[in-house]
Amino acid sequence: MRQKNWYLTIGVILTVCMLSFIAVGFFWTPFEPSAMDGGARNAAPSAAHPFGCDAYGRDILSRTLEGAGSTLAIALAVLAVGAVCGLAVGALCGYYGGPADALIMRLCDAVAAFPSVLLALVVLAVTGPGKYNVIGALGVLFIPSFARLVRGEFLKYRERDFVKSARLMGVHSLRIMFVHILPNTWPTLLSGLTIGFNNAVLAEASMSYLGIGVRPTEPSLGYMLKDAQGVLFTLPWCTVFPGLVAILLILGVGLVGEGLRERMGAAA
């Protein structure tokens, strides 16, 4: 009997909605995100400004669209750096094992022992703020968790008979790793990627909130929250809408991950 997987259904719908919302922002915003309209200062949500305006008269909907796009881009870039490097490190460690594996894994443990935002703060204190520095710092710090996830999977599969059989047939080790084993690990990796994505969105938002993330000229959701915290009670729409977009995006992707895990569990 096959039960309906609500997590996956709702998660996919939510994620698709949020991604479409953000995609619109790449091409069109109702107003110039940084344009100040003196007559619309502190305007509450209305037909002209559905999400209201901030103290400078900037349209919150436009800024949220742009900020969400920038948050998404940063999160995806962080994920790409972390996942690609983590995949390579984890695959090699898991497949070959030995002293090099032990050493690298202890190193990963050491890095993972610190909260990644804290370490990224240290890195950014040295390099200065900016989109690419955030991506680099967070990306590197995301490597250990992916490496460990991938390593566990490769450790599991390297002793399987189909891998031994491929070795006997003379298949190259790299091909065994990335063509024979990797496709079997997709379900696990995919759910790992969704968790990683959410962590990346949160980490970027936290860092921008602390003022060491992106520069003011390239706003992200976290930066908008920081910017508006002084007017949290007088102009609540300045924080509620960017916050809501971040929450819904994370919730959607998180549900997809949970749904995938559930489906894997059902298949196993």
Binding site: R160, D161, F162, K164, S165, A166, L168, M169, G170, H180, P183, N184, W186
Partner: peptide
Amino acid sequence: PRPQMVFQDPYGSLNPAK
């Protein structure tokens, strides 16, 4: 030059993803 092996468990000796 390249002897081959047939394993006991046909569930484990074939790559499930292929």
